[in-house]
Design a protein around this nucleic acid. Structure first.
Lengths: 260, 260
DNA sequence: TCTTTCGGTTCAATATATGAACCTTAGCTT
DNA sequence: AAGCTAAGGTTCATATATTGAACCGAAAGA
């Protein structure tokens, strides 16, 4: 194992510890020699990734990641990361795939991979996806904190078709099912003749950052096909989430584990 | 130099690049061998600190720091505590406010609240603030122990403009004035046409953790305005410090700790 | 008081990092 | 289309950084 890997694993271990820890403690947790642990800590401290409390001599996570995270946020390449996965999912399912981002309290389409088929669903880049009437919206909302769900449901729920879910109680039940299932299903919610499935792109400790959805004409959407697409969307969303936020945290998330 | 340091320096270099960069580019920037650079990148990628775009094969900052930064924030909520105060200060002054954190021996910008005006100062998140050439740097350094001041002044002092303070004696005098005044003033230190003021965010018994600064175009920076902004920055910094560390400790005599 | 454990250090043994040379592919010039 | 350049990536003998048992002094328990 490379030195870099060992050091970054140590950093990860420190980040997982509930409280600041001493040298011997950290060495034990990482199964590393005390001398090695110390050298790693000193190097990491030089670069601000860990801090040592001058009084207790215990070590804690440093401030350097904050700067990196802020830079990352300003350049957040959500689109370029997710696009290849979306294309893959489009190739796999043969249906139109679209990617949405949560911003300004709304879910908006930021990328579309069109199905290759002549008879296909068209989704416009830039279109707003209502929470209650799209698979993306449901898949996103189901994994949000309760207060966000309450806020979304307390808003007026427009009926786009006669299948659109507008009853708060029914909506809550659907969200519960979605949460348990790991992906959402929406029949004719926004437009008749369209069935879609979606799964959230999830951030550790935050609401999801967006969703990825597959939309198919209902003539091609038998129960089994819908389930296959849903599972594929969920797997793709999971892979995107892992790429965006790191493997460990997503894997450690209890909800994600339950879903996977 | 240790492998860890080299790898973390590489990471830092990547974070500074304007755009995603290719392998050879990064190797050149870091003055490292291409093979070494590649191995570092692979290791860093394994841990999510860098990402490689599968299409362009270029490398960029990864998502792992986001997770670490979140953890850091839950334990030491500097950013989330200070941001509302920064916004308030920006509203009050009508000028761009930026917040910096001290880590790895450098002061880096971790948050910016832009002025609402069309003619305003632009500050990039992630940028490094030299001690001798920015209000943030001066405001931070003035409240550090003497040995830190000596260390900072003994380093080469680059002249960014013809107003940049590069004379050690003049710098020491400015730091003394800053300490007595409670906030720093910097005219055209890093860039001509910009005047800024800053005050340190202080931790009891330790050097400051960072600084908060107001930056204005010099056309709007008359003496009285600068003094107003300085006092406002100082008051804001004090309130942030109090929120982070509690009232009593921050209120204690600052100079008593200079020996530290 | 004695014992254990702590943070931290040393240095010979050794595992790991290194980089010149290499390969393949992509894009540009002639 | 041939020829050139520079890209990303790989190999392996050499060189160097990493390793950890043994060590130290201090402090916390017994």
């Amino acid at each position: 194992m490379s030195t870099i890997s060992k050091a970054l694993t140590l950093l990860d271990t420190i980040s997982r510890l509930e409280r600041e820890a001493g040298l011997s403690d950290i060495a034990r947790h990482c199964a590393l020699d005390k001398a090695t642990t110390r050298r790693f800590l000193v190097e990491l401290e030089k670069h601000g990734f860990v801090e040592q409390d001058p009084e207790t001599r215990r070590y804690r996570l440093g401030g350097a990641p904050v700067r990196l995270a802020r830079i990352r946020e300003t350049r957040f390449p959500y689109l370029s990361v997710a696009t290849p996965f979306a294309r893959e999912l489009a190739n796999l399912t043969g249906e139109t795939v679209h990617l949405s981002e949560h911003a300004a309290g709304r879910l908006s389409t930021i990328h579309v991979e069109d199905s290759q088929r002549a008879h296909r669903v068209i989704v416009d880049v830039g279109s707003i996806l209502p929470y209650h009437a799209t698979a993306s919206g449901l898949g996103f909302l189901a994994f949000c904190p309760q207060k966000d769900i309450d806020a979304a449901i307390s808003a007026p729920l427009q009926a786009f078709t006669d299948h659109t879910l507008t009853d708060p109680a029914a909506l809550r039940q659907t969200l519960g099912e979605t949460l348990r299932r790991g992906y959402s299903i929406c029949h004719h919610g926004l437009e008749t003749g369209v069935v879609s499935v979606a799964a959230p792109i999830r951030a550790p400790g935050s609401p999801p950052v967006g969703a990825i959805a597959v939309a198919a004409p209902s003539t091609r959407a038998e129960k089994e096909t819908v389930e296959q697409m849903g599972r594929a969307a969920m797997a793709t969303a999971r892979r995107i989430s892992e790429r965006l936020f790191g493997l460990e945290q997503v894997a450690a998330d209890p909800l994600a584990r339950r879903a996977g």
